[in-house]
Write a protein that binds this DNA or RNA. Structure first.
Lengths: 233, 233
DNA sequence: GAGTACGATAGAACAACGTTCGATACGAGG
DNA sequence: CCTCGTATCGAACGTTGTTCTATCGTACTC
């Protein structure tokens, strides 16, 4: 059987893209349905064009992800640069980290790709620089400053990864909400032997219905308290 | 053309697996060539059997990954339980976290999958419990204990993720070693405008040729210092 | 010992994905 | 009108996770 031929004359219009539109639609896909939803075919359909056209703008999927992340990190950077800024550099660091974390709460997929490639992702480097500039106001060695910023980014990424893993599709469908999902885990934990798992029993009520932002803020504050101590303030 | 028929008589022997052998070979694949090397076909070939046989032991790839990580976390847990243990609970926490991190240094793929599903991964839960038991020796509220352990795990995961991303295959082939890879980044950073990037210039020498373990230890110590402060010790 | 039920294995096929290829449209400049 | 570089697209390729269906081998039953 002969293959169907494409008839150019009365076919559909050709689509006209741009780097901007490609990234915007890619981010929209990621926002709407998570990382696994961003495929070249889905993106092409959204753009009203062909699959191969996207490859004119990006070399491969990794670069697509990198550019998409950089695209939204740009807005986060703008938010961070718009922060008032006060007397205490540690407080400023705290505000910056919280702004970054808020953005990841809104876009859980960010956590997985953020800070992967500072080569293409120029905005990540600028964000890194902005955090570091606050440490310049502290009495620290260069090595301590380097480690301090790495630690803060590590706390953000660590919490974000914990948060970014997609719930097992019952809660994504809305059939089960997050609290009930957490409650099931909590219930399973409560049924463990208290002799073998004293700590789990101690904190199970805290775990049940806990807030991710609280958890992150606490972790961040521990690091910042350590930093304050190190800076001798 | 007719398909070739499988002749059972003089064909090769049937393979005989076990949960143990499946996980062992899966871990071996992960160790040898990273996460992308673990495919059902590669694993089946290693086991000398068919692809579908693996599905008798695990429901899907996610469960395979979960069980594989749990398999090696079991050894880490044994190492941690074998730790001497001293007067200071914070020091013990430090030793535990370092043991865990060492295991991730040996197996970078661990960082990405560790602590994803405590349902199947019973050893992760036990590890979590072990960390938590140290906080029971500190003067903290239940919520503070919960947040403390989350923070420590967050620091480990945050550093591990930073470390776990596969280098761009030049260093994996051995054509370029890690120091040279870091050096290229450092060089690019040095060429940035010092007015726009004062912090990057401040720490570029620290970044160049830095040690991941040092970086992790510093981040961990900041968190632990904050924890000590919180416990009022 | 013939029959059977079940644990276990396996090849083939399927759908979806990232990626490549070759062809083709389009506008600007000669 | 022709040409060239930019931009687009359908079709195909190879690989992946997964499912289907058929089979083997062993232990147990009558």
């Amino acid at each position: 059987m002969a293959h169907l031929q494409h008839r150019p004359g009365q076919g559909r219009r050709r689509a006209s893209h741009s780097m901007e539109s490609v990234l915007t639609e890619a981010v929209a896909l990621l926002d709407e349905a998570g990382a696994h939803a961003l495929t070249f075919r889905a993106l092409a359909q959204r753009l009203g064009g062909g699959v191969a056209s996207i490859y004119w703008y990006v070399a491969n999927k990794e670069e697509l992800l990198d550019r998409a992340t950089d695209h939204v990190i740009g807005k986060v950077l703008a938010d961070i640069e718009a922060l008032p800024g006060g007397d205490d550099p540690v407080d400023d660091l705290r505000a910056m980290a919280l702004t970054l974390f808020d953005a990841i709460v809104d876009r859980p997929w960010l956590g997985a790709y953020f800070m992967r490639n500072t080569d293409v992702q120029g905005n990540s480097l600028r964000l890194y620089e902005r955090l570091g500039q606050q440490t310049l106001r502290l009495d620290l060695s260069a090595r301590q400053r380097f480690h301090a910023v790495s630690a803060i980014v590590g706390v953000v990424v660590g919490s974000a990864v914990d948060m970014g893993q997609e719930p097992p599709k019952e809660v994504l469908d809305g059939a089960v909400d997050r609290d009930e999902f957490l409650g099931r885990y909590a219930q399973a934990w409560r049924e463990l032997d208290p002799g073998d798992f004293p700590f789990v029993h101690e904190i199970v009520d805290e775990f049940d219905g806990h807030d991710d932002v609280d958890q992150f803020r606490s972790a961040l504050d521990l690091t910042l308290a350590g930093l304050r101590l190190q800076a001798g303030a």
